[in-house]
Design a protein around this nucleic acid. Sequence first.
DNA 1: CTGAAAGCGCTTACAG
DNA 2: CTGAAAGCGCTTACAG
Lengths: 337, 337
Amino acid sequence: MNTPNRPPTIADVARQAGVSIATVSRVLNGSTPVVGETAERVQEAIRALKYVPRTAARVLASRRTNTIGLLLPEISDAFFSPMLRGIEAAAREAGFDLLIHVTGEPSSASRAHPPLGEHNTDGLLIFTDSLEADEIERLHMLGLPLVLMHQSVAGYEIPTITIENKDGAFRIVDHLIKVHGRRRIVYLRGPERHEDSLWRERGYCEALEANGLPVDEELIRVGAFDRQTAEAAVGEMIARGVDFDAVFSGDDESALGVFTALQAAGRRIPDDVAVVGFDDVPFAPFLAPALTTVRAPIEQVGREAVRQLVRLIRGEQAEALTLLPTEVIVRNSCGCK
Amino acid sequence: MNTPNRPPTIADVARQAGVSIATVSRVLNGSTPVVGETAERVQEAIRALKYVPRTAARVLASRRTNTIGLLLPEISDAFFSPMLRGIEAAAREAGFDLLIHVTGEPSSASRAHPPLGEHNTDGLLIFTDSLEADEIERLHMLGLPLVLMHQSVAGYEIPTITIENKDGAFRIVDHLIKVHGRRRIVYLRGPERHEDSLWRERGYCEALEANGLPVDEELIRVGAFDRQTAEAAVGEMIARGVDFDAVFSGDDESALGVFTALQAAGRRIPDDVAVVGFDDVPFAPFLAPALTTVRAPIEQVGREAVRQLVRLIRGEQAEALTLLPTEVIVRNSCGCK
DNA sequence: CTGAAAGCGCTTACAG
DNA sequence: CTGAAAGCGCTTACAG
């Protein structure tokens, strides 16, 4: 096998370069000027020994971790990649490492006591529904910089980044009514208490009301932003003979389930039932028919969240609420073209 | 704002409970038996002070980090979520935290000196093309447990996890030839030197040869596992009048670009040109026509990689090569049904 | 500009 | 079962 040599420490470098460890530390961090020739000797020793500073020791001594933590409830298919891409890029640009933890199901212990916190990060990005309110409060009271994503906690001034859910939902439902004459529009709710979903539902209701249509509780079901759940929900409505001529599926992922259920029942999209989603995931244009949806700037949400968090970490003022604009993307599943 | 109280330390807990810090450490770690009543006093103090142990200090003192590092070249759309889901779940089950770093473009400094290594992880999962060979060697020589994903480095005995690329490619190309009579089959290569792609190309060639068909260099192009690149490649072949009746697109992501290019040129899928992919991403069944492809057990690759890494970390023997089986998923884009 | 030394917050032999 | 103490590998006032 391989030789488990003890990796070199700052003392080894100092010895090899004939200086004190303080001097090595200084050239490592550029914190205090070091005479050129000395600095070079140190650099050489670092190279020769292939020295890599121990993160734990630096963190402990400096009380800075230089890393940002990200807390997520789960790893979703559609949403996750672009968001993480934005976060990762922005964190790197700002010189922070990224630590990710998935808290898992609601009962999970790591929602109350996540392995990420004041002890190993300079600040936390908290995605909706990934942490218990108590723990958010504890971290906030401790003074740890915190940014919430797609979630606002009443009572604290924690910066929040989210998108214009209500507005986007309003416009796409309005489109269904005004342009395509739909009147019995289903809304598929996301996971319970999911803020995005709540706002989308509000936009849906307001669009109905603005057009003089009633809000019919029978048309509001749970799709859970999940393909299978959405498929089952729509299948069940069809089986029970519920009358509807359009589905606003809450998000694009669940639109897939809606497609499956409608096709299984022999309903044509969009002729019999128009279907629209939310997010504009990469495959949306490739569905048959191509999915009309609301574009959510997910990657930008990630970037913006890091930007605000970095401000907090630097002791600067952060934006209390950042609301990123959404845009209706008209394709064919609504009946256009 | 909020009060930047200094978080409590082990000394605060010890004082409050009237014991030594050694005892607190022991109840924290369960390393040595502690008398029931004493242990309870300590637990109480921990709760009262909301004490959370500093990770950096534990790591420094114990020389164990209890975290696994994951190095990726980029965050791809289709591949990333399932793989990370597998890794994350397996790491959590084994009691490890997960640290992720994206090294970025080939020239990036973090490919030579990633922020993850012997100093802050117990072991590393290295995805293909995310690290320079020199750095892999340095880490390996240091004795840091390493597992390679979708990549094999000649010359070292580093465990590798990958999938049966060649076999899957062979079978899907063979299907195109035997069942659908295709003879001019395009192969779209992945990113340069990408091992998955190399093996798929080999399977493609062997299938042609096994059926007495020539390997025509004109039919082998670069799709780079990227939608736009694939679209451009196919568009250019059409413009140049290259004759072909099928495309094996290398992966599903690039199949999207193939679809776009063919549709733009008025070629019908699968009648004029059959199209098949590799991966079986979630949206594959929803394309029009539904995509025939090879299912790659991506999530399982992630789980297996963690399993082997944990073995190494525990000083156990690990599997040198794990080859996960692939399976042809027949849908409609090949011409079936 | 450089060094000696204290200290960051834990773990872990070593005694008892 | 429990405590005193050394030590993990750094950073950073404090002197000079």
